[in-house]
Design a protein around this nucleic acid. Structure first.
Length: 573
DNA sequence: GCCGTTTTCGGCCCGACTGTTTTCAGTCG
């Protein structure tokens, strides 16, 4: 059982305990425990073996015992008991927006409803209206919630939602009373998937802005509409929340609605220790507002360096801010070039020349072409005899123009046995080689780990492409021991890709800490198949920042001449 | 259930909106 699986069980237990009407702080202890275990960079099993699990803050005697038993038996009696009491379908009802544990418990115990499907049917039969605490309105609301749940299952890709949020922000900026607007929430924190769009605005005429907001052309339906806070469902199916405050309150509201919840809870605890009270309206000493012009000020008042939104996950950033050890995060402007571009030679659309123009317009100084290798027949992988033509075309382009330096590479399949897809004498010709798994995802974890490590040990491998193969909201990562893979990459000086495609964002930011410890270099690669794929670099930078990466840790912040010597240095091994 | 340099008991972040209520519980963030 790995950390993620332990966290899943603990989270599930938290939900079930909530359904059972348990002490809310006990519930919180379980879900906090889940969060902590998931964020560990070593297997919890290791800490169980050396007896240090209970030393982690938030993991006490009971959770240590539960986790120990989970690792041993795969389950614990309390979990089994709770699952028996609340069937799977009852737990699923919690995912319907507007339904929480109390209502689900009532529906289950008083009406015998055991699944989302049954709930929908019961709504149509008007059976909820008679239930105490429910009524006509809540029945309608639940029906709408079910519809939303079924349609989208609640999460969206950052890359799809961010432009929508930007559009609404622009609309709001057009309102005469609006002084400032910002995207907040998980979007501002650059989470790879998000549940909704959070916006915060500063305006004198809050109600006017609210009326304006709920009438925007993007809006399909109004979910809530108050004087300072409204929620709408957009035509694209995602919910957008807007909060309007006074200009003076703006930094506090922005901070509050940016979260994360865990960061906020920790910060409020600190505020309390320092004799303050912090909420969305301000930082107060007693009744008195401590005025802050921006978020920087808020942190300063609490004795902290400014914490960028991407880091606000309560994963050590508050301690680092107190000790003045926060990293200076990489920025989009630091990016000098990028690797992993496909052309019409395999499954991309652009020609190498078109990539040069697009890269120049984007401000890149170099670009690495890497089409698929011969085994990737589905993607038009290049046969050995086709390679020479592409090499010559790229060499000619480098002769003809000097604005963007092209590097000639390949995205070589890692074959099931861990070897690369061309013989050594071919691999030796490329400027760089990205090694990626594209097939046979069904190996065991042990086999997959060995397969990838063997590819990392190949002297021609420059970069490991999309290390887990996940497709966000669509496909789970293949089973692999990433810790061992990263260690092998460090031993063999192989660069790890941060695939910037919004469907991948792989390596996951949660692993960056480990990568940093191993002094690995990370390449932010767009894996672009079309010209507009260049813009994905920005998504990759967001994730890199979320992973605490500095400019020095990102390969493609190197200047063109330094990249050249880096690639040549690797070839001479 | 977790935590603790005044504490091993008594706290644990806080407010808006909704709907069903006549004063508040549930949900959400």
């Amino acid at each position: 059982m790995d950390n993620k699986e332990i966290a899943q069980v603990l989270n599930e237990m938290a939900l079930l305990l909530e359904l059972a009407g348990e002490n809310p702080f006990k519930v919180r202890a379980y879900s906090e425990g889940a969060r902590i275990i998931e964020a560990l960079d070593r297997p919890a099993a290791e800490r169980v073996r050396n007896g240090t699990l209970s030393q982690i803050k938030g993991i006490g005697k009971t959770l240590t015992q539960q986790i120990t038993q989970l690792l041993q038996d795969g389950t614990v009696p309390l979990y089994e008991e709770l699952k028996k009491r609340f069937p799977e379908g009852v737990r699923e009802m919690l995912r319907v927006p507007g339904l929480g544990p109390k209502k689900v418990k009532d529906l289950f115990e008083k009406l015998g409803i055991q699944s989302v499907g049954e709930l929908e049917y019961a709504c149509h039969e008007n059976r909820l209206i008679a239930l105490p605490g429910f009524g006509q309105k809540s029945q309608e609301k639940i029906l709408k919630g079910i519809e939303q749940y079924k349609r989208f299952q609640g999460r969206f890709l950052f890359g799809e939602v961010y432009p929508l949020a930007g559009g609404i922000k622009e609309n709001l900026e057009g309102h005469p009373s609006v002084r400032r607007v910002s995207v907040a929430g998980s979007l501002r924190r650059r989470m790879e998937t998000v549940k909704d769009i959070d916006l915060v605005a500063a305006a004198e005429d809050a109600e006017g802005v609210m009326d304006f907001f709920i009438r925007l052309p993007q809006v399909a339906e109004v979910i809530a509409h108050g004087p300072t806070k409204s929620a709408v469902l957009l035509k694209s199916g995602i919910q957008a929340d807007l909060r309007v405050v006074t200009p003076e309150q703006f930094p506090f509201a922005l901070h509050h609605f940016t979260g994360s919840k865990a960061h906020h809870t920790a910060l409020r605890g600190r505020a309390k220790d320092w004799g303050f009270k912090l909420n969305e309206y301000g930082l107060f000493r007693g009744e008195k507002l401590v005025s802050c012009a921006d978020e920087v000020e808020i942190y300063k008042q609490l004795g902290l360096d400014y914490i960028p939104p991407e880091l606000r996950e309560d994963l050590g950033e508050i301690e680092a801010a107190a000790n003045h050890t926060l990293p200076v995060l990489v920025e989009e402007g630091d990016i000098q070039g990028a690797f992993h571009f496909h052309t019409f030679y395999s499954d991309g659309t652009p020609t190498p020349a078109q990539w040069v123009e697009a890269a120049a317009a984007y401000g890149l100084k170099y670009l690495g072409i890497s089409d698929h290798s011969q085994s990737a027949a589905y993607a038009g992988g290049l046969k050995v005899e086709e390679l020479e033509k592409q090499r010559q075309e790229i060499a000619a382009l480098n002769e003809r123009q000097k604005k963007v330096r092209l590097f000639w590479g390949i995205e070589s399949d890692i074959l099931p046995d861990g070897s690369l897809d061309y013989p050594d004498e071919i691999l030796a010709r490329f400027d760089f080689v990205i090694a990626s798994v594209h097939s046979r995802f069904n190996l065991t974890e042990e086999e997959m780990t060995a397969r990838i490590i063997k590819a990392l040990e190949n002297p021609y491998t420059t970069i490991l492409g999309h290390p887990t193969g996940r497709l966000l909201l669509a496909r789970e990562p293949y089973p692999v021991d990433l810790g061992r893979v990263l260690e092998a990459a460090a031993r063999n000086r192989v660069v790890i890709e941060l695939n910037a495609n919004p469907h991948r964002l792989d390596l996951d930011w949660r692993w960056m800490k480990k990568a940093k410890e191993l002094r690995l270099k990370i390449a932010i690669n767009p894996d672009a198949h079309h010209l507009d794929g260049l813009k994905d670099i920005a998504f990759g930078v967001g994730i890199a920042r979320k992973g605490w990466l500095t400019k020095g840790e990102v390969l493609n912040t190197l200047k063109e001449k330094d990249i050249r010597s880096f690639l040549q240095g690797r070839k001479k091994r």
